[in-house]
Design a binder for these strands. Structure first.
Lengths: 326, 326
DNA sequence: ATGAAAGCGCTAACAT
DNA sequence: ATGTTAGCGCTTTCAT
């Protein structure tokens, strides 16, 4: 692969001059420019960004750590991140941490070794210490990682309120919420709290079903079926849309009609759900805005590592009414 | 951020020795090792992989170019790629090319500039020339890119055959196939050919509806509705599962019963579909095997740029029978 | 068992 | 307007 020196030789100028042409910097005569450009074309030259970055410049690489990308929510988010980063001249190293803390730890080390300019993290396997030690600009999505790491999230509390209001408005009396395992410190818990508080104001209570994030859909389906059979519920709030799909599936098999017998509301409102399951009432997270916010903050921190940022940035959610609530 | 020299000083040895410890190479006394390790811990040292790679070593970076990741098929594929690459000590730079050739071209340049060790490409915006000029190991998924770039794909032709057989077996008489726009040279066309040939053997014909990849689901849905109303079909083959979901949606709205009035079969069989739409009969692509194959070939080429590989690697598909065919 | 020194490809003073 | 040179952090001969 051609180097800057090769170009210099071919064009009959010094390496510096070539560097100047590449970076469009200092004063160059038109002649030299043309010569150099010609040489670059001829050898299909690409400046080695490793060498460049070694000289203390930015790598323009961002590490993105998420639980996984086969889930449509994170799929859409990653797509959005990639798109926005690209427009700003950054590339992304994708890290699917799953629920494996060892892997996440290894990735963190790798990202440091690769001298990424910053990190967007939306996973939650690790303790605080590891993220503190990284010493790189980090922005978190929907998770508390450590002091001084800003969290961007949608308004989970209000989402919970909206869900409760929608179910109340549709005349439900016996409420059920289905969540993932609730981690301490996770902003996601606010969905539950918002739901609970709103019901409490009307003196209503509800049952809670926790399904571990790591359970397979089959297992989740089974637990849902069990719940559906045992309890007399008529208003269900799932804190993610995929679980809501499982409820629809199980209800259909049991001959339970939605929304006649049960009203159902999900959470996330990805483009995927809007396109392929428009029947589902859900709370939409503003993924594009979340990503814009995260990237904005991250780039600020990259420009100035010391810049002060808020602890929390909360973006508004929206109720999308489908046919699963009346 | 600490450098190798910092460690050397702190440990009271030469940089060379530190390098030896890091790479576990040459002969070291236990004492020195311990000292050096201690120094590394103390400064939370991570070797700068940029500097390492500059010295001619591999970057352990792989570029992955795909149309996008919000589609569950590519989502699952990316997840699989990431997972397998990680286990072999590689990272991945994710490039969503969409249907934007300028972006794909820019990414190709970036990947060269970043000196990735190799590329996995599954997009199809670009002409042959650009991929030829890259001069990096490349493996393609399901697309013809250029001479000497191996293509890994599932057995599209056989998939088409299976689909036809399933519809025939379920007693359909009037066939419809719904595909994306058919590009020349795309292995995907074979799905159509396999379907056609199998029907032809039984003296059956079929209608073709082409939906551009770039159309929104709403538009696709509209065209499907139109088709459903106008034609008298009772056996539909969609060359991807998402389109099949759209057919289910439209049929439901029109009061057409599946499988009573129409039999339906999709293509891809992602884990997502298997979990959330088990009712859909579909042809499953062996994503994990495809990825294993691609990575295997890519690493071979990375080890030896000249190594000879086949032009095509075709992996078997499987019929998954749901309730949309009887 | 350890160290000195050159060099990977580039950029940035500092000349001229 | 262009060139010389040193150095980014590491690996790798070649010495000792």
């Amino acid at each position: 692969m051609a180097t800057l020196d090769d170009i210099a030789k071919l064009a009959g100028v010094s390496p510096t001059t070539v560097s100047r042409v590449i970076n469009n910097y200092g004063s160059l005569s038109e002649k030299t420019k043309t010569k150099v450009f010609a040489a670059m074309k001829e050898l299909n030259y690409q400046p080695n960004s490793l060498a460049r970055s070694l000289k203390g410049k930015k790598t323009h690489l961002i590490g993105v750590i998420l639980p996984g990308v086969s889930n449509p929510f994170f799929g859409q988010m990653v797509q959005e991140i990639e798109d926005q980063l690209f427009k700003k001249g950054f590339r992304m190293i994708l890290c699917n941490a799953g629920s494996d803390s060892e892997k996440e730890r290894a990735y963190l080390r790798m990202l440091m070794a690769n001298r990424v300019d910053g990190i967007i993290a939306g996973s939650h396997n690790l303790g605080i210490e590891e993220y503190q030690k990284v010493g790189l600009p980090i922005i978190s999505f929907d998770r508390y990682l450590s002091e001084n790491i800003p969290i961007v999230s949608s308004d989970n509390y209000h989402g919970g309120q909206l869900a409760a209001q929608a179910l109340l408005a549709s005349g439900s009396e016996h409420f059920q919420i289905i969540t993932g395992a609730n981690r301490p410190n996770s902003p996601t818990n606010a969905r539950l709290t918002g739901f609970k508080d709103t019901l409490a104001k009307r003196d209503r209570t509800f049952d809670l079903l926790e399904l571990r994030f790591s359970s397979t859909p089959n297992i989740k389906g089974l637990k849902i079926k069990e719940m559906l059979l045992k309890k007399n519920v008529d208003g269900i709030f799932c804190t993610d849309d995929l679980t809501a799909l499982l409820v629809i599936q199980q209800a259909r098999e049991l001959g339970i009609k939605i929304p006649e017998n049960i009203r159902l509301i999900g959470y996330d409102g990805t483009r995927f759900i809007q396109n392929y399951h428009p029947e589902l009432t859900t709370i939409m997270q503003p993924i594009a805005d979340i990503v814009t916010m995260m990237i904005d903050l991250l780039l600020k921190r990259i420009d100035d590592h010391e810049c002060q940022l808020e602890d929390n940035y909360v973006l508004p959610v929206k109720l999308i009414t489908g046919e699963t609530t009346i």
